[in-house]
Design a protein around this nucleic acid. Sequence first.
DNA 1: TGCCAGGCCGGGT
DNA 2: ACCCGGCATGGC
Length: 216
Amino acid sequence: MRQKRKSKKLLKIYQKLYNAIGPRHWWPGDSPFEVIIGAILTQNTSWKNVETAIKALKEYNLLDPVRLLKVDEGILANTIKSSGFFNIKTKRIKNFIRFLFENYQGSLEKMFSENLTPLREKLLKINGIGPETADSILLYAGGKPIFVVDAYTRKILLRHNLISKAAGYSETQALFMENLEKDVRMFNEYHALLVYVGKYFCKRIPGCENCPMRGL
DNA sequence: TGCCAGGCCGGGT
DNA sequence: ACCCGGCATGGC
């Protein structure tokens, strides 16, 4: 498909979803810090299980950079148990927190004052932070103009012939970023809407026949 | 009951 | 540059 067509189709999909479903007000979370921790916890995990873990973190007063820096790993692992992969996620959270203190004195504000591209590269160097987690942090916690790609995004785009089966993360991301205005608000809503469609239409019975993307 | 969920890493080709 | 097994709980 030619670029011009792709860009029109991407915009059309967005407008159709937005009009049919409305704003999603993403990411679910009370603060940028909570968004970041949630982004790590939700790796290959249902959001429901993550919510339980975040609730537990709040109960134990652990949803805070200094507390997480100091907390014993065993305690942390036990607290986030419901999110699955708890040992490895404990390490990943610790890795991020140490990064935050070593480079920005524990301040998210300082971290996000950095420019998008260099910050993204630094985040990707943290063990346990891959492209989706990094981009979720940048977009949803930091308000930076980057498009988040996830399993739903690829599945839906593949079905609508906008990417090939072989398309990886960066190729899929480039499709959005090179064919749409780099608008934080839209990137935010667009990804959230795709997740909504994936969850509530694609894999629901009944559901697919009512999908707002039907016919596009 | 088994399969899947808003990934990522490390080791192997 | 890909490909794969491992990581683990809770919901259906």
